[in-house]
Design a protein around this nucleic acid. Sequence first.
DNA 1: GGGAAATGCTTAACATGTTAAGTGAATGCG
DNA 2: CGCATTCACTTAACATGTTAAGCATTTCCC
Lengths: 172, 172
Amino acid sequence: MTKKPADPANGSAPAARQVPMRDFSRSLPMSLLRAREAVMRQFRPSLREHGLTEQQWRILRALASIEAAEVTELARTAFLLGPSLSRILRDLEARNLIERKTAKADQRRSMVSISREGLKLMASVAPTSEAIYAEITRRFGARKLAELQEMLGELERSLAGLGGADDTLADG
Amino acid sequence: MTKKPADPANGSAPAARQVPMRDFSRSLPMSLLRAREAVMRQFRPSLREHGLTEQQWRILRALASIEAAEVTELARTAFLLGPSLSRILRDLEARNLIERKTAKADQRRSMVSISREGLKLMASVAPTSEAIYAEITRRFGARKLAELQEMLGELERSLAGLGGADDTLADG
DNA sequence: GGGAAATGCTTAACATGTTAAGTGAATGCG
DNA sequence: CGCATTCACTTAACATGTTAAGCATTTCCC
């Protein structure tokens, strides 16, 4: 199998490269996607055993660290879009893992917090999760991991304010 | 509002950190997700104007560079799961952007290739796409970009063979 | 005060991610 | 040959991503 398509030294390229574009497999989005998938592949089975998806786990973690939050704030913290979060909160509430109550001062807002049961679930998942993270750190190297995170942060910052079209977000 | 929750210097932390775990916002999956989103945010509007999703674009690019491929090979190249690819190919075929024909030697396999119309569409999208990529490269720095991609590749390799549970993939 | 605009959240609609099951075709092997 | 197994791909079912509407509530401002 060891087949290497799109070899630039190919004397008679059999029809490839019909549109002028950089090599597909080396695009930044692909690199990021593949790397992330390699990481998440490690966590998914453990989460699944506890009946949690990656996003549900993100929400519980976010809630456990900030006590209570409005939906919009939670969306920003867990990096989820409003509609996704809305659905997930509905399900987590039905499973009694979170609690909601509308704010007194502003009927539009609802405060979300993790329930006692949610905390118990977290406590049962956290050890495995931390162990996996430790193994990843060990394999890749703690220093390199820190460097990588730094670069990812820089990339994010360098693209901030290059808004993707019609948006006027700019945030606060 | 420049609010910084989970401040470690907070004299009377109001209930946070109820489960022992590293800081949520600094997890590797989150960093990768945020970085990728920052990048994709740049491309999506342009793709959308041409009626393409990110994944559809990936498939067209993959096909344009390798001429024709079996579905499974295409899934690996475009980094998509079988079911996703199956759906997308159905739609792309209905839009006459790709062509399919079952292999003679093995009726199970189907060979997929990009159509003339698909190539035209690609040609109309590629310039904008390349320009966006160039701007990203300019902002972040070409050298740093190469470094980042190298690290991402290393991360992926260092986690290969740490299979996510019951799998016996190991591939070839 | 009162209506237009903004805000916070939810629903809707369509596309993909993820896992499991299904279908038809090819292979292995007794 | 016959049949269980494997293989390539598709369908199905549920969850999330993404964009656009919808619905209260609140704020702005005359």
